[in-house]
Amino acid sequence: MSKPSGPGLPPSDDDFEVERQLRRSTRRGFAVGGISALAAVAGWYWVKTRAPERLVPWPLRRVLELDEKVGRALYSPARLARNFPQASATMPRVNGRVGIDPKLDLDAWRLRVEGPAGARSMTLADVKALPRFQITTELKCIEGWSNVVTWAGARLLDLAESTGLATLSGKPGDPTSRSGDLLPFAALTTPDAKYFVGLDIASALHPQTLLCYEMNGAPLTAYHGAPLRLAIPVKYGIKSLKQIGTLKFTSTQPPDYWAEKGYDWYAGH
């Protein structure tokens, strides 16, 4: 039982016991807290100083890959980017000129489509012979700005279906229904190969992924990617490669211009 104590009375043994206990708890608590704080700073420093993989410390690169796995597992091609009224479309700024040759001979230009089963060279008229689709969607730059744009062109899905080159067998027809036959990646490059983009096949064959020849109702200008560019609303704008030279379906993950420069390879919406 506790002895009487209080204001005016000398402190009792119990008071000293409480103080001892408090001092002990304080020492232990602040030691644990201090060590935890140091561990957190050390952890941050450790991550920051790990060997970079394509300019990103490898632990963060692993997490970006984990994010990609989760994103791909939850991805559905049935979910479409929001369509806006065409009147809200404006011209986006030209944010990148890498890989674009403004003096490219448009008549001599060909789209080269490659896959393990073969290759095809297509004229712009061949692309335009595919069903024409038009969408008005947000072009979302990885920098954080966005811009509503009306795109018109052929679906990459239709090109894959008609050429059959997105599959190992090379057989034309809906490639999305043949999961064992379908190649997992698509790679796009400019004619000079200075700009290059890698896509997972699910995003490449999204129904809104277009091989565009028109932007806001007019043919593409040189710096917006004439004669043919990609518009892929399920990705950041960095993936919408301008002035396509080659489209290749492949079984290995293609390199990507911005992924090499320290960005997420998937960059998917």
């Binding site: 990103v56 632990p59 963060l60 690169r61 970006l64 990885i142």
Partner: peptide, 14 residues
């Protein structure tokens, strides 16, 4: 440091 920012942000979001 946009790329670096995104890498940290999309790790620590978890």
């Amino acid at each position: 440091h946009l790329g670096e920012g995104m890498a940290w942000h999309f790790a620590f979001m978890w």
